[in-house]
Nucleic acid binder design. Structure first.
Lengths: 196, 196
DNA sequence: TCAATTTCCAACTAAACGTTTGGAGATTCG
DNA sequence: CGAATCTCCAAACGTTTAGTTGGAAATTGA
């Protein structure tokens, strides 16, 4: 049987995504990652270097294109609301992504792969701003940050939902609030500085 | 010199707040906590039991009254915006609090001290809903959750701010967006289901 | 076919880590 | 004043953990 270096790497990375998103850097264990991957731990060191480098590889692999897969399709304030709803759905389908972003923010002093991610975020901000109407770059970026923050915190901090609304499982209800918030903020931004 | 059991406990708890808010449960170290406190590690086990119980004591001590210190003073949508701004300021003054909430959400399967915290959140929701005008309990809770989520994620996930807006240090700018978002959402909720 | 190279593995290592132990010193009360 | 009790400490313990080593097995190319 042929060697499968790429397959082994991919298996390790997939296992590492699961382990780091669940436990963070400090709580993740090399043993568990190699067990989940069905690969010897020494292979992990050979391919990725050390635990910290593996974590950074996971963040780069998973977070680089986190915004790309969610399109902006409507126009006007509905564009922002629609995008927010789809981003919420994306987070619901892949809750490991918001979790990884929060682990990154809590455990690293500086984000990974900032050039790539900053560039992609700027593209999405511009796309959103154009679809909405006339938003400044700054306002569009703030709007995007608000959308992403609301979506991420619902999935990464379900304790808050449970304590404040008594329910961390009402995804539909929360989705409606997130889209309503987004549309309301967008209208406010379009009305100009008086609104902000 | 008299024994100071309460002082020793308080020193350990204070050191533990700092350590757990910075590193989370998985990354925190008992050695560092006892060093910061200037207290022998054995005292920690004697007073708190084990590392996990100390973490839970920290969460109960710090998060139980997190909303209480921020008043609702205006009326109408400005009440929500004003509260949001003050809550943002509280988070800025005590960034360990949003961080601890996120560590709790990521590292525990169920929040600590939920009865106390749920009761206090319900009081604050009711206070906010009444000040704003006529908001249902459910809407008021959703509004409160939105405010808290926006404030917490700015401080616990500064990586996002850096990547999306290019600046994780513009607290004033972000504060304006949070208050504007809050006011816009509040107006939308007051207008009824068409808004949500 | 065989030597060289590469991928992969089991076992090992040293340090880190949470927790416990034996006892010193301080306090309290009879 | 002295015994009992309590608070506190330094050192030790057993386990966990990240990372490394020596070598087996598979692959490749001459």
């Amino acid at each position: 049987m042929a060697w499968d270096v790429e397959g082994t790497k991919r298996a390790l990375l997939t296992a590492a995504v699961a382990e780091f998103s669940e436990k963070g850097f400090g709580g993740a264990r090399i043993d568990r990652i190699s067990e989940r991957a069905g690969v010897n731990r020494e292979r992990l060191y050979s391919y990725f270097g050390n635990k910290r480098q593996l974590f950074e590889a996971v963040l780069a692999d998973q977070l680089g294109t986190i915004l790309d897969g969610v399109p902006v399709t409507e126009t006007g304030p509905a564009a922002a609301a629609g995008f927010a709803g789809r981003y919420f759905d994306a987070c619901r389908s892949h809750p490991e992504l918001p979790r990884l972003v929060f682990w990154e923010g809590l455990e690293l002093t500086y984000p990974i792969d900032t050039d790539t991610r900053t560039a992609r975020a700027a593209l999405k901000s511009a796309e959103l701003g154009a679809a909405v109407g006339e938003l400044s770059g700054r306002d569009a970026a703030s709007l995007l940050l608000t959308i992403v923050s609301l979506c991420h915190s619902w999935f990464a901090s379900p304790n808050l939902g449970l304590i404040i609304t008594g329910d961390d499982g009402d995804h539909e209800g929360r989705r409606r609030i997130v889209t309503a918030t987004t549309e309301a903020l967008t209208r406010g931004l379009l009305e100009g500085p008086a609104g902000g």
